[in-house]
Amino acid sequence: MQLESKVGPADLASGSKSQLRSDTGGGLLAQVYGGKYAEATRAGRMFCIANTAPVTTTKDNDTTWTGLGIANPTGSDKNIILHEFGWAHQIAGDDDGLVGLATTTDSGFAATLTARSCYFGTGTSIAECVATATIVAPILERVCGTHGMGAVTTQIAVGPNIVDLAGSMIIVPGRSVVTWTSEITTTVLMFSFLWEEVDA
């Protein structure tokens, strides 16, 4: 069976039936509606975490790592789909360098920070969230910006520092994602993650 669509706008009453609509190139016209994460949020699959105070960050692939990280524990039977990574200076930086995301195993992780359901009361995360851990040397995967050391008098406001990962990084059981800075920063930065948990 071949479905057909019709070119040009229709003027339809509620409850009426109509042909699908296409543009003159044959593309089906679709109205995207609502927030793209609303369905997953309502279903209790969306979670987030943030540092509750500025955090010191370690340098490069240091295994005595600090920052913000989330791990998918071995045996969880879930995949973690990363959607967003946010970061910001709380005070002027004490060094300049790169902000990125790295991945490693789940070794050294524990549920020391509590992941929040994005729909309060609905859903419980399997993720282990930490601000410090002894980890297996991570590998930098994404470059997300630069942390500077300009005085607070040089800019009036900065942002939004939200990296729209849009599901482009999936953390499987036994793996983790951690913040990564090329230089040590001392209680300057705060981070957050937004992710979805689905059956593996």
Partner: peptide, 8 residues
């Protein structure tokens, strides 16, 4: 829950 900007 979310961090996204800095005010100086």
């Amino acid at each position: 829950e979310r961090i996204f900007a800095t005010q100086a």
